[in-house]
Amino acid sequence: MTRISVKVDGTTYEDEVEPRLLLVHYLRDRLGLTGTPVGCDTSNCGTCTVDLDGVSVKSCSVLAVQTDGCAVTTVQGLAQGGELTALQRAFHERHALQCGYCTPGMLMAARDLLKENPRPTAGEVRHALEGNLCRCTGYQNIVRAVLAAASDEEVPA
């Protein structure tokens, strides 16, 4: 067992963990932060994407011990005080989710893109999301939503 200290969504946790414990299982099974789901075992699907010290990572391919001393932001840490972020709002307004299972990862991947490239083209959005699979939407509305969030367009309901 290894002792780690990790800040997740603003709260610092100290825990003894097995070295092999995957970050996503630490979040889900130990911390009860089940907003971040698991969709594959080969790091292809991206549903488990979180922010680790300011960049997106796939939490199924990071060991909890590797995050000792780091800060993690999950989908559960995005909305502050019940207020959705512009990206979350855009996903809602553009119908960028159906079953919602890929949504946490899509949001974290898109958020990462917009930090580096606040005004992406549609092609750049598709490139940035290539590691996040969705089986419901055909991606078109996800791309629209990310572009809308980037331009902060308001969409009439």
């Binding site: 995957l22 080969t42 790091s43 391919s61 990071v62 590797q66």
Partner: peptide, 25 residues
Amino acid sequence: LAGGQSLLPLMRLRMAFPGLLVDAG
């Protein structure tokens, strides 16, 4: 263990079984 992006998926599929990981990170 460098970035782990090849190694950890292989271990999850139980196609690699290292007894010790030396985390160079």
